[in-house]
Structure formats: C-alpha cells, structure tokens
C-alpha cells in the first residue's frame, strides 16, 4: 500500500493517545480532589482530541491509497486487538493515583520530545498536528511532574506508593525508544533527553530510577497485554452492536 509506513506510524500514535485517554477517562467523577478530577479530565480531552486528529489523517491516507471509506470512527471502533499499535504502558490499569500520575509523567515527557521532532517533519499534516498538540503536552508534563514531586516528597505512604508505581511501570518505558519499522521519527534518539528529564524530576521527588530492568515490548506490533482485550470490546460496543448506525 502507498504510504504504508506513514499510515502505520500515524495509527500507532492515534491508538496510543486514544487508549491512554480511554484509561484516564475512568477517573472522571472519581478523582481524589475535585480540582484534580477536572485536571485529569482535561488531559483526557486533549488526548482524545489528538487521537481524532491523527485518525482523521490516517483515514485520509488510507482512503487515498486504497480507495476505502475509513473515518476516525471506523479506525477507532472497528479495528481489533491485533490491529491496535498503542504503547503497552497506555493500556495498563490505572491503579492508584500514583500509578496514573507516574504513567502520565513518563508518557507525556516522551510525547513532548516526540512532538518536538515531529514539528520539524516535512509532512505538513504531521507538523501541524504536532504543533497544536505540543502546547497541550507541555501542560501535561508540568502537571504530572508536579504531582510526581508532591507524591514522592509527600508522606511516607505516598512515597511508597510512588516506588510501587515505578517498579510496575518502569519495564514498559523501554518500548518508547525501540523503533518499529514504521516509526515517523527517530525515537531511539530521544532516550537520553527523556532519561535526563525523569532523573531531574525524580531527584526532586526523592525517588530513583530502577537498574537493570527487563523491558517489555510488543504494543507497536499489536502484541499486547491481556488488558487491551477488555478495553476494546467495552469501548467499541455500540459500534459493534449497531453496525452502520450514525451517532
């Protein structure tokens, strides 16, 4: 297919932000503090908005290449577990507030670097979506960094919960930097900057980076954790139950 790598690269990002949005959305109406309920929901809305932009672009490319009739919704709601290319870290359960915060921090810090590269893309669409999204992502990084510091350097309990979250989530961060064949930017090149950012925030939060962790991979090629098989049927239920209906 024409543009196959570009299409897959765009879908990979779209799936990643959609699935993280879907996970974060579960906090809406259930947050620990009303103001933070609003904040995480805001981030969720940004992620869903980014997903829509990427899916719309992917649909355009697919329809051009293959004379199909894809839309943002067919791509989000009618593809299956093995088609989804999201990063594994996004599909993991929310866990407690520490786990949710830490995931957001890891991911948003990566995404910020990714968008900084994508802005320079010769593909105008990619550059434009990245330019729009990075303003949102800068806020996500700031918000989640502050929470990492607050929880790491808060009480003994919050510190322990952050340590537990690090132990669980760290093994899913290696995947950020292992390129799939369709990657839009050179993700491996972002690793040092990302590690530096994490280290500086962790220092302030009195936390440390684990050593010698085995890194899980597979999301980019559609080999997921067992969680995705529950997320998709729930998310896609109306589209699956009422094929072809407009909403």
């Amino acid at each position: 297919m024409k543009n196959e790598n570009l299409i897959n690269g765009v879908l990979h990002i779209a799936d990643t932000v959609l699935i993280l949005g879907q996970r974060n959305a579960a906090w809406c109406a259930h947050g620990p503090i009303l103001e933070q309920d609003i904040a995480i929901t805001n981030i969720t809305l940004d992620l869903i908005g980014q997903a829509r932009n990427f899916y719309q672009y992917a649909a355009l490319l697919i329809n051009e290449a293959d004379n199909k009739n894809e839309t943002e919704d067919t791509l989000a709601f009618l593809r299956t577990e093995r088609d989804f290319k999201n990063l594994l870290i996004c599909e993991l359960p929310n866990g407690d507030w520490a786990q949710t915060i830490l995931r957001q921090f890891f991911f948003s810090s990566f995404q910020q670097l990714m968008y900084q590269e994508m802005i320079k893309s010769s593909d105008n669409q990619i550059a434009a979506i990245a330019a729009k999204s990075i303003k949102e992502t800068n806020y996500h990084v700031k918000w989640s960094s502050e929470w990492v510091i607050r929880l790491g350097d808060g009480t003994d309990e919050s510190n322990q919960r952050m340590k537990n979250a690090i132990e669980y989530l760290w093994q899913y961060t290696g995947e950020f930097f292992i390129a799939a064949e369709y990657e839009i930017i050179d993700v491996a090149a972002l690793k040092n900057d990302w590690l530096e950012k994490v280290k500086s925030i962790f220092d302030e939060a009195t936390l440390s980076i684990p050593e010698n962790t085995f890194m899980q991979t597979g999301g980019k090629t559609g080999v997921h954790t067992e969680h995705l098989g529950f997320i998709l049927p729930e998310m896609q239920s109306l589209q699956r139950n009422f094929p072809g209906a407009e909403w």
């Binding site: 407690d96 607050r150 309990e157």
Partner: peptide, 16 residues
C-alpha cells in the same frame, strides 16, 4: 469510595 481512596493523596499534597 473516591473520597476515601483519595485521602492519602490529599494528605500527601498537604504534607508536601
């Protein structure tokens, strides 16, 4: 549930 499970978060924010 949201309130109770958020108690440690609010405590941490205050302590910090």
């Amino acid at each position: 549930k949201a309130h109770d499970e958020g108690a440690w978060v609010r405590a941490a924010a205050l302590a910090y």
